[in-house]
Design a protein around this nucleic acid. Structure first.
Lengths: 355, 355
DNA sequence: ATTGCTCATGACACCGGTTTCCATTATGAC
DNA sequence: GTCATAATGGAAACCGGTGTCATGAGCAAT
């Protein structure tokens, strides 16, 4: 310890020295490179040599050092998840999907929540990407809708795949669902039940998902020849609380809508909550449809009819796009870029009251 | 490309060569070592030299390569989160706490969900730890209660900190809350409201959190001199569904309990759901208290009175324990090992009905 | 026997940092 | 002015892998 430049290694760690590729090579009587070939399943390798080396590897319990590999290869084995989504279940589902795709590979997932309202957001992400030199990132909505983030990834040479409600990028960089079509179906279902006065609680301005869902809503109504007064559209921002207040605004309308579609389940749960507060019965007086099919949808009373967003599959597909060609030579667009949502019918929809 | 050992680098990546420490050294007219000293804030360095080097670093936008650092230092900068907790909000809160603690350090967080029911679990985790050579891991309940996991970490030389409902390990390896005391308070509150027939929906067998919460429940009753018939205790496993079925079992009792405490919010939400199904009014006919204060608690009707588990602070504290001494020479037990829960009073508790 | 080819393997440099060890320079005491 | 000492900076080794290229063996064709 001639120089105390850095913090000293506090002695305790009795981490028994891990065997290295050199140890394996020496004991097997071959060169490092040959061991490296065994590890990487090189085809041009004598079967007998391979077995001898593998035996030594097993005996020593040798595991290649990922840091060294990362350095030598000039890339690491980290896939990042960048998100600013407040919905815990959604984020966790995405993590699950990514991890499923990474299962059995050398890749790990690192998670990076960001604050889209911060002016530093882009700088933060840039610093993160440059520092960590991630292999690639998955971008979760709503921040995935931001083109400047995608450009940033390009700039720093980091692969990316965006998830979203609509195709915003080419197939290699995008996994989308078709929200518009799914909402159209849901609203058509309400219309078939007899509803004519249907309210909409929108997602926040500037979110593509919000816009797509609204477009699906409008499509269904205009196809059925039903007009849509401005007053039936209430603003929300995907939180439970705005669901409550938007619902209250719609309840004050006269005539009152007999059904409300909320652009996500949180807000739909807010509608149900507000209805209880006001003594409005769901579904007898009011039908409610949400979007996402997060657990809350099934766990409130009455259980919510909602559109299931195929979030886990989307995430899995996104991660495969990212690492597929490295892992098994698969082309990045072998993975689907468009996945379908589906309507889940539960107890929050009924025909409108007779009055 | 003489040898096609590994998958070829698909050409596209026009990642402009990142500046290295050599570039900085050359342009600043100093040696690598000097640049390294600047990066690591070595004190024995001429002020003028430092400034010159820093200027070059800024000009080049140089960022040290973490992989190379990890290799040279013999440790990486990854903190793992190992969990098998099905509660999304809880997992995400823990992630948030860990990331807060890691903020501004060179550490990143990798997430590893495991399946505690799999016989391969320990082997999987061992493979994970050995492969990735993580700096340390945070263990989330319920799997954190498993001593064999902690022993495994010791064995492979990986630091760990366990989170839990009771002190299961020494202060350097544990961050706990005091569930027992918190539940005692909650039940005492029910007793003060006049309840005498109080049901309990337990967490799964073998979970320390479940046991501690039950002990707190029993403590409060016996302190108040209230007996606890076996029939008032129903089994659950922390899921919404078992909350529903356990509640139904308690509803069939005669006399029916006037209050039920559930060992977590999911199950408490199940009670409220079941009550609605049966036409039992909460809180008029039945008071309900949950545990955790996850968002669902505030988002159902009526909003749940519950015990807030200080999960974010616990996670932050756990992560600081892990990296503290490396980051700023802080002793690992400068961080608290015990954090307090608190009762959040909302709308699901009222005095018992007169009858 | 010589040439030409393929196959299996090894020597060696390299990735980008940190550390060791030594050389040089600056400082201060005499 | 000289010498001892401390402050500073550089050369080279090292961390543990991978890539490049050379080499020797084995074998078929000439």
């Amino acid at each position: 310890m001639a120089e105390k430049d850095s913090s000293s290694d506090r002695g305790g760690s009795k981490r028994s020295a891990k065997p290295t590729i050199n140890d394996v090579a020496r004991l097997a009587g071959v060169s490092k490179k040959t061991v490296s070939r065994v590890i990487n399943r090189s085809p041009l390798l004598n079967e007998e040599t391979r077995e001898r080396v593998e035996a030594v590897i097993r005996r020593l319990g040798y595991v290649p050092n990922p840091q060294a590999r990362a350095l030598a290869l000039g890339r690491n084995f980290l896939v990042g998840l960048i998100h600013d989504n407040p919905n815990a279940q959604m984020v966790l589902n995405v993590q699950q999907g990514i991890l499923e795709a990474l299962q059995g590979t050398d890749f790990e997932m690192v998670v990076r929540p960001v604050d889209r309202n911060s002016s530093m957001m882009l700088d933060d992400v840039r610093a993160f990407l440059e520092r960590q030199r991630l292999f690639g990132v998955v971008l979760l909505p709503p921040i995935s809708e931001d083109d400047s983030l995608a450009r940033l990834c390009d700039e720093v040479g980091c692969r990316y795949v965006r998830m979203g409600s609509v195709q915003l990028d080419d197939a290699a960089h995008m996994v989308a669902s078709n929200d518009r079509e799914a909402v159209r179906e849901a609203i058509t279902y309400l219309i078939q039940m007899g509803h004519r006065l249907i309210g909409l609680i929108e997602g926040p301005d500037g979110f593509r998902s919000a816009r797509e869902r609204r477009l699906g809503f409008e499509d269904a109504l205009s196809t059925a020849g039903i007009g849509l007064p401005r007053s039936l559209i209430a603003a929300g921002n995907y939180t439970f609380e705005t669901g409550v207040s938007a619902a209250n605004r719609l309840f004050d309308l006269s005539p009152r809508p007999t059904a409300i579609f909320a652009s996500n389940d949180e807000m739909a749960a807010g509608i149900v909550y507000a209805a209880r507060e006001r003594g409005v019965s769901v579904p007898d007086d009011l039908s409610v449809i949400g979007f996402d099919d997060t657990p809350i949808a099934a766990h409130i009373w009455p259980p919510l009819t909602t559109v299931r967003w195929p979030i886990v599959s989307m995430a899995r597909s996104a991660a495969r796009k990212l690492v597929g060609d490295v892992v098994d030579g698969e082309a990045p667009d072998d993975q689907p870029s468009m996945l379908a949502s589906m309507l889940i019918r539960r107890g929050s929809v009924a025909p409108p009251p007779r009055t």
